[in-house]
Design a protein around this nucleic acid. Structure first.
Length: 283
DNA sequence: CGGTAGACCTGACCGC
DNA sequence: TGCGGTCAGGTCTACC
């Protein structure tokens, strides 16, 4: 579910609640996620301290002992929450508190008696560990630059556009080209750039590639800002609770009037996924 | 090689 | 109330 801004909101919300805390115990309730949670993850984490929470694209990196990470991808429906376990201070840890909710798959019990719990209805998400720097994490090696990063420049946008024969929708969803965009923000960025999702990438003018570059950056930073205003509610950071949703121009608005020209928003399917756009504003 | 379809899951919703 | 079909914001793999 979550795209880069939602994952960033989750990261920022979790950070102050878990950094500096020691992991006492880890329980896997249901390890068969998108990829199985490694059986040795509990042993790997036990006794270590969470030293930071980082993010690249839609991946969360929970750093332990400043040297290794457990990595999580939320897939479509993954969520983290903190449970206060009401532990008595100083009491010896006996047994983990039983699972509380349906679809809880992973619990990380912390030394202060709280627990970091991963819940994922569709189990498209996954949790792995990475012993070493983030750059060594295998799934990132072919990922492209993030929006608003130095490597994601106008010349880069122009170059990858020229090199792609497919539609812009496909180009922007490709994590190897730009890391972190998903269906919603691709639709929104294309609206801002006044370009259709079906437009062949290699037909862009230089000016249009520049507009697309600016749109990708602006829609992502605006969404992060919107999520950032409700950090205390990171559990709902999939966007369903609102936040940036109120700022969406086209996504999910089929048949409703375009805010710019009032022509009804159109929905089409591209390689099995919905694209929303204004037939009048976007060329 | 780039590009595309299918697979992986569960649940919500809509029309009959 | 129940049933079947459709849809959902991601990523990987197999196959042209």
């Amino acid at each position: 579910m979550p795209e880069l801004p939602e994952v960033e909101t989750v990261r920022a919300g979790l950070e102050p609640l878990i950094v500096g805390k020691k992991i006492r115990h880890v329980t896997l309730f249901r390890p068969d996620l998108r990829f199985p949670i490694p059986k040795d993850l509990p042993d790997f984490l036990a006794g270590r301290e969470i030293t930071s929470v980082k993010r690249y694209a839609k991946f969360l990196f929970f750093e332990v002992d400043t040297s290794a990470y457990f990595v999580c991808h939320l897939g479509m429906t993954g969520r983290f929450r903190i449970e206060g376990l009401g532990a008595v201070a100083g009491a010896a840890f006996a047994h983990p508190v039983p699972i509380i909710a349906k679809h809880d798959h992973f619990a990380c019990y912390l030394a202060d008696g709280t627990a970091l719990i991963y819940n994922d209805v569709r189990r498209f998400g996954f949790i792995e560990w990475c012993d070493g720097p983030i750059e060594h994490y295998q799934r990132l090696y072919r990922f492209g630059p993030e929006p608003n990063s130095e490597r994601f420049s106008v010349p880069y946008m122009w170059r990858v556009s020229k090199a792609s024969i497919g539609p812009l929708k496909t180009l922007l969803l490709n994590q190897a080209i730009i890391a972190g965009l998903g269906n919603i923000y691709v639709c929104e960025a294309l609206f801002r750039a006044r370009l259709r999702p079906t437009r062949k990438a290699n037909t862009l003018t230089k000016k249009q590639a520049g507009a697309l570059h600016a749109s990708v950056n602006s829609v992502i930073s605006a969404a992060i800002k919107a999520g950032g205003s409700t950090l205390n509610d990171f559990a709902h950071a999939d966007g369903s609770a609102g936040y940036f949703q109120t700022c969406l121009n086209v996504y999910g608005r089929e048949g409703e009037p375009c805010y710019v020209c009032a022509v009804p928003i159109k929905r089409i399917t591209q390689s099995g996924r919905s694209s929303f756009f204004c037939t009048n504003c976007q060329k």
